[in-house]
Amino acid sequence: MVLFDGVAVRYGAGPEVLRGISFTLAPGSFHFLVGPSGAGKSSLLKLIYLGLRPAAGRVELFGRNVSVLKRSDYPAMRRRIGVVFQDFRLIDHLSAIDNVALPLRIAGVRESDIRRHVPELLAWVGLKHHLDALPATLSGGQQQRVAIARAVISRPSLLLADEPTGNVDDGIGVRLMYLFEELNKMGTTVVIATHNEGLVGRFTHRQLRIANGTVRLVDPAAAMPLAQSQAATQPQIDMRHGTAAQPEPAAQGDAGARQMQAGREYAADERDPGEPHRTWEEPA
């Protein structure tokens, strides 16, 4: 789904922020992107959602090398990716409902479908009573949920969330994580960038750890149940080895692609807004 090979990032003539980044994200996988502030998490996500060109190396997205894409190819790629930006990037003069509807309108979805699905999703993230609110009138946490709703409304096959729990307390942060896990179970590949080690520690998802401008893979699930000795000598699996150990089977890739296709057809019945334990309580 995503492949990085020897990728480097620099802004303008500045120093390399990231270098020698290599990893793959298998379809349906769930990864944390962990590192302190300024480590380059947002920059790495930008590379994936085609917001930044690599200074070196190769980035493959959905099996295509992004450096050979034409400008007119980007929209189709980006429509398969949902992004929760660190600063939300909601459009100030549009209501919550119009902000969430934006990707659908851009994709040319029928207005009647939009009016049906968008309020549903907003209700699901606990914003039933704020459909027409402008972003400026919403709290940070509420804006974040609008941003999340916008990222998932078109059922992307890849979800990138940049510090999605940054503006909320830990309780809500964990609940947001359940939301992402739910999406992951429905087939979405998820990458969550965060500097919150406490949050990461509560889950067993694989971690892409950024330090000193480079990235390595940590797999808590693989490290723990296997021989402790192995975990002790090699507690962190280098990304390149991780790739070799877990080759991405072609068949799996195909299945993922089919799944994406299905998701993009925007079947209303797939979403169940009635799940009570997933529904957000409106904060008082």
Binding site: Y49, L50, G51, R71, S72, Y74, P75, A76, R78, R79, V83, R89, I91, L102, P103, I106, A107, R150, S154
Partner: peptide, 16 residues
């Protein structure tokens, strides 16, 4: 500029 960027990032063609 910022809105244009967002609109692009959520999948808009230039013609949109």
């Amino acid at each position: 500029r910022r809105i244009v960027e967002v609109v692009h990032l959520v999948g808009a063609h230039d013609s949109y």
